[in-house]
């Protein structure tokens, strides 16, 4: 088993965090993993992406060219990454912000208004966790329970009240 994931969107959408939650949940389950961010100068609203590899065996190459799953949260990211999904791959597409969602054939595209759904929960910033919920339902790569444990572990001091809404968002995605 080797699952290659790309998460992409604009700065502020929690792209890096989404990748980190998946990565840390995989570590909890004693799987091998790598996480690589796009780095350097960036600004809120600019593009951001990270790649995650999860495997039962030791990961030789951490480099992701084509991916098995793509989380995509805005139009420029979709335009940039749609050709990098493997045939048979899965796309979790934020239809709130991606209007032109035409994609390659042979790829399963779940078009869901993640940002709108998050706003209806009262916090547009949990769109990433709604998408994660959908992903967990689609693919059994990491467990929901592990993700919940990760939330509790990585929440910075003073922000504990945010764990609840993130769990709620993940559940909402899981039920979509």
């Amino acid at each position: 088993m080797r699952e290659e994931i790309i998460c992409a969107g604009f700065g502020g959408q929690g792209i890096m965090l989404l990748g980190k939650v998946i990565a840390q949940a995989a570590m909890k389950e004693n799987k091998h993993l790598t996480w690589i961010p796009s780095y350097g100068s960036a600004m809120r609203g600019g593009t951001a992406f990270c790649t995650v590899v999860i495997s039962k065996e030791e990961i030789a190459s951490p480099y992701v060219d084509k991916c098995d799953s793509l989380f995509v949260f805005n139009q420029p990211s979709w335009d940039k990454f749609k050709r990098r999904v493997r045939p048979g791959g899965l796309v979790l597409l934020n239809s709130t912000l991606i209007k032109n969602s035409l994609g390659p054939k042979g790829v399963k595209i779940r078009k869901i208004p993640f940002t709108d759904l998050a706003a209806s929960l009262g916090n547009a910033r949990v769109a990433n966790m709604i998408a994660l919920g959908v992903y967990l339902k689609e693919k059994n790569i990491v467990k929901k329970k592990s993700c919940f444990e990760v939330f509790a572990e990585i929440v910075p001091p003073g922000k504990e009240h945010l764990v609840g809404i993130n769990k709620q968002a993940l559940d909402k995605g899981y039920a979509v």
Binding site: A23, I36, Y63
Partner: peptide, 10 residues
Amino acid sequence: DGMLGQMMEP
């Protein structure tokens, strides 16, 4: 290199 510096692994 930059990949090693930026990459997270267990």
